[in-house]
Simulated assay, not measured.
Amino acid sequence: MKQVLVLSGKGGTGKTTLSSSMIKLSGAKAYADCDVDAPNLHLALEETLEPKNSDFYGLPVAQIHSEKCVSCDLCRQKCRFDAINVKDVYSVDKYACEGCAVCQLVCPADAIEMIPRITGHLQLYQNDHVFSTAELCMGSGNSGLLVTEVKKGIKDWKEKATLAIIDGSPGIGCPVIASISGVDLVLLVTEPTLSGFSDMERIVETSRGFPAKIAVCINKYDLHLGNTEKIEKYCMENDISFLGRIPFDSDAVSLLNSGKTLVDKKGPARDAIEEILTGVLGLINLKEDEI
């Protein structure tokens, strides 16, 4: 199974719009949403199946048993995250606790216990296709670990599906790095703005730390042709595959709000995405009739 990861250096460039469009065009049987902070791929794909839900446990959280506590104050003094509250009794702020267990280590009364903590929720849709997604709980960390679990959801389909399309997170942080690991191609979506170009450079440098191929496409390219040409020149000078330009489509918002994708309407945007998909399949050595 070939894995294509769609990324952007910043939010709002059209990453999910392109991912959902390529999934519909290609008929891919495996796909995932690794933007666990704000997953929305399911909105564009109109999933009607009931998912299999499971909880994700990240680092544990400290809990102080007040009946054992001797108020020595060592836990508060040693906590680097200011997670220990002192009022009538000692307690732990679960949103500030990072699960390092230093408080448990220094407690002379054995009054502190590290307990499992749910930090996210996984959903797995399976029928004639597989769709794996998840959402991180508010204030929780370990987003990279949760992304890894999301990707495991589609691995069982490696014998059934030849292509997996993964919608990644914006930026260059832990969830992006976890998303890139093991994929065959990173497709970067950028926009013809100065911030779009700068953020694209950052994600290119991040992706180069992995063996995956890198390709670029520009969304809403006609908003600034000068910056579009600048991006294309950068790709040529840095030996990066440039796969195409997607024009601005004034109907994009209404299509997305109605749960549809850009390829549900014939026009220049659909034609451009078809061209990009052809380029993607060429880079991963996969034919359309093999999907």
Rank of each mutant, 00 (worst) to 15 (best):
D184H: 14
G168A: 10
T193W: 06
L187A: 14
P170M: 06
E191F: 15
L187G: 13
G168Y: 07
E191W: 14
E191D: 12
F197N: 04
L187D: 15
I180C: 11
T193P: 06
L187S: 14
S195N: 09
V186A: 06
S181D: 04
S179Y: 09
I180P: 12
G173W: 14
L194P: 06
T193K: 06
S179D: 10
T190C: 07
I172A: 10
P170S: 04
G173S: 15
G196T: 11
P175D: 03
I180T: 15
L188S: 14
G196Y: 14
G168N: 08
I180L: 15
I180G: 13
E191K: 12
V186K: 02
S169H: 06
V186E: 00
T190R: 05
G168D: 09
L187V: 14
I172G: 08
S181C: 00
S181R: 03
P170I: 04
G173D: 13
S169D: 04
S195I: 05
P170A: 08
V183D: 00
L185T: 01
I172V: 12
S179L: 08
P175F: 02
P175Q: 02
E191S: 12
P192F: 07
E191H: 12
G171E: 03
G182M: 09
G182W: 11
S198H: 13
S179A: 15
S198E: 13
S181T: 04
G171Y: 05
D184S: 12
V176L: 09
S195E: 08
P175K: 04
T190Y: 05
T193V: 01
G173N: 13
G196F: 13
D184N: 15
L188Q: 10
S198M: 07
V183A: 03
T193G: 04
C174Y: 05
